[in-house]
Nucleic acid binder design. Structure first.
Length: 497
RNA sequence: GGUCGAUUCGUCUAGGGGUCUAGGACACCGCCCUUUCACGGCGGCGACACGGGUUCAAAUCCCGUAUCGACUACCA
């Protein structure tokens, strides 16, 4: 039997970082064993599901490169089948109609209300204690025919326990007494989550369910449904959760954009880098290597090397430099400066295009220059955005000057206001404007003026790039070329800032 | 409250009774390189939650405690 796994998000928001990691693990596992990776949109919560969310999730998955191997399943399309399954269980006496009026838990603080209720019921309420559980079929049918509203609940056996072997957590048990007679069908006849999941997983012939450990108790409930339905449950693997700093739940509401995949795409992350980072959150190959290609991840992935403890996604909302996890930022930078240049180029092109800095010559007459320049400046970049911000001076005459660079490297040495234009004059007659020749010219100039190499170079850097940091100035002169170097050395704009 | 799960440097992690004076990565700090630096090189700081067992030997096994998390819905 071929392995079939599924990623089953509910479209109530953008693709969450934890969901993305679940999708990644499902994907890696499927590919590792030569199985299929499927996608199911769990849009049964009509009130919260939106088409916009679905699109956002699909985009996020596409960005990460996880294409489903079969057509996408929309759970809401299967409601009839789920309903039929519940009715079948009712017919077989494995479920019963509950005529208890629907309870209205207040809309806010639902979690709290549920916990409070559970506390109150503690010790006084038996999970099997429902006056309609053992109603005779005739009575139940009569009430239903009379039009009394009812929900259908699963008849969980009085004694026993659910047991399953989790690929990550090992043998897990839960006594039936801890599990309520869960509702399968609402009084409006719409199916509930656990029923829908089980029915769809059966229909999709899912062999391995890999999901967050927040589903651990659901798994016990779902096994009960599998058993009632006379089906064999799939294998389960529960993943540790990704938490916010302080060990709190990482939530969309509290932590905002940081949990959304689109944020990373828009911030100039390479999907490959982020994927790599995600893979190492809760899993490791048990070796010191940390940078992996997708192929390597697929090859090395295994469920038994997934952790059992939750991971903290570290960031500091108040510090722009650490707006997201340090290691993710580092990994993206690592990818940018070490990946194959030809693979990086298309991303740089896209970035420059969106910043209106792109010129078609970069792929034609100026191809060699462009590649050399990208290769030069990527050394110190952290994300794709840097090519159009920090790197702007390499692609446009219209760039900003960093005030600190001006003050520290230019204005602090007033002589530079005449020296730099003078240096430009020395450049003018040069025929060979390359590294060594420039070095020689600047060297002589420095000697003449009785100053230091650094003073000239740092001042020139401020003028030519607007920044205090960057690659070797000799390389900058060379890549910018004689004309631009002269023009910018002579420019007085920065002196007036 | 109950059930279940987890607990190694600030963070991600290696570790599965002796090789652990606990290894790596990120971050941080210092030095070097250098015309600058966010590159690179070298080094430093820094952890087995606590208490009991078991054992010749425990980060590793067992039991308690603490802490954290999930779940506890006619949400998904």
């Amino acid at each position: 039997m071929t392995t079939r796994v599924r990623f089953a998000p509910s479209p109530t928001g953008y693709l969450h970082i934890g969901s993305a990691r679940t999708a990644l693990f499902n994907y890696l596992y499927a590919k590792n064993v030569g199985g299929k990776f499927l996608l199911r949109i769990e849009d049964t919560d009509l009130a919260r599901s939106t088409d916009e969310s679905t699109q956002s999730i699909l985009q996020g998955l596409a960005w990460l490169g996880f294409a489903p191997d079969e057509e996408i399943i929309y759970q809401s399309n299967n409601a009839d089948k789920h309903r039929a399954a519940a009715l079948k269980l009712l017919e077989e006496g494995k479920a019963y109609r509950d005529f208890t009026p629907k309870e209205d838990i207040g809309d806010k603080n639902i979690k709290q209300a549920i916990a409070d209720k559970a506390r109150q019921n503690q010790g006084v309420k038996n999970m099997r204690d429902n006056e309609y559980r053992d109603l005779s079929k005739a009575e139940s049918d009569a009430k239903a025919e009379a039009g009394e509203p009812f929900a259908i609940r699963l008849k969980v056996p009085e004694t026993g326990k659910t047991v399953f072997e989790d690929a990550v957590y090992g043998l897990l048990e839960r006594d039936y007494s801890e599990t309520e007679d869960l509702v399968l069908l609402r009084s409006d006849a719409s199916p509930l989550y656990n029923l829908s999941v089980v029915c769809d997983d059966i229909e999709m012939e899912i062999t391995d369910v890999i999901r967050g450990q927040d589903h651990l108790t659901n798994t016990h409930k779902q096994i009960l449904i599998y058993e009632a339905l006379g089906e064999k449950p799939p294998k389960f693997a529960h993943l540790p959760l990704i938490l916010a700093p302080g060990g709190k739940k990482l939530s969309k509401r509290i932590h905002g954009e940081i949990v959304s995949m689109t944020t990373y795409r828009d911030a100039g992350f390479l999907a490959a880098a982020f994927r790599n980072f995600l893979a190492l959150l809760g899993w490791s190959a048990g070796e010191e290597q940390e940078i992996y290609t997708l192929e390597e991840l697929i090859e090395k992935f295994s469920l038994d090397r997934i952790h059992q403890s939750n991971a903290t996604f570290n960031f500091d909302a108040n510090n722009p430099k650490r707006w997201t996890d340090d290691k993710a930022i580092w990994m993206n930078a690592e990818y940018i400066r070490t990946m194959n240049l030809q693979e990086l180029l298309p991303f740089v092109k896209t970035e420059l295009k969106s910043a209106k800095l792109w010129r078609d010559e970069y792929e034609d007459d100026d191809k060699i220059w462009f590649e050399k320049t990208v290769d030069l400046i990527r050394e110190r970049f952290f994300n794709l955005k840097d090519f159009s911000t920090q790197g702007r001076a390499y692609f446009s005459e219209d760039f900003d000057f960093d005030q600190a660079a001006i003050d520290k490297n230019l204005k602090k040495f007033p002589d530079l206001q005449t020296w730099l234009p003078e240096l430009a004059e020395r450049f003018a007659p040069m025929e060979d404007f390359t590294h060594d020749a420039i070095h020689e010219t600047v060297g002589k100039f420095v000697e003449e003026k009785g100053t230091k190499f650094g003073v000239i170079m740092n001042g020139a850097r401020a003028l030519l790039t607007g920044l205090a940091v960057g690659p070797s100035m000799l390389a900058v002169f060379e890549t910018l070329g004689k004309e631009k170097s002269i023009l910018r050395l002579k420019s007085q704009i920065a002196w007036n800032l």
